[in-house]
């Protein structure tokens, strides 16, 4: 039996900066996971992924990452995505101040 589809976001790394980006509903790339488009339909997610992969001049290593719906937008369900969002622990400048 196929596993039920879990919500996802399209994510990857920006080609020039290398930092983590998420696909927003308007098709732009955002650094803010809260602004990412949460994809709850499997076919829809595949289409968004294929479209994103074609934007090779903007992003690298695009994939679908599991997320849950939170009060402020998508929330990571696995610690790897949580760390991708947060940046390395222990450095105050880790994210956002770049």
């Amino acid at each position: 039996m196929p596993r039920p589809f879990t919500p996802k976001v399209v994510t990857g790394n920006a080609l020039l900066e290398g930092d983590v980006v998420y696909l927003a509903a308007d098709g732009s790339w955002t650094r803010d996971l809260a602004r990412a488009e949460l994809l709850t339909d499997e076919a829809d997610a595949q289409v968004r992924l294929i479209e994103a992969q074609a934007r090779a001049g903007e992003v690298v290593g695009v994939y679908l990452a599991d997320m849950a719906e939170g009060p402020d937008g998508p929330e990571p369900t696995h610690f790897r995505e949580a760390f991708r969002r947060a940046g390395p622990s222990g450095y105050v400048f880790a994210k956002s101040t770049s």
């Binding site: 790394n13 900066e17 290398g18 930092d19 983590v20 690298v60 290593g61 760390f83 991708r84 940046g87 390395p88 994210k95």
Partner: peptide, 17 residues
């Protein structure tokens, strides 16, 4: 590009190159 950058020590990691 990837094999070319790797030959010159450039990786893509979690948060950056």
């Amino acid at each position: 590009f990837k094999p070319l950058r790797l030959m010159n020590g450039l990786y893509l990691q979690l948060h950056a190159y």
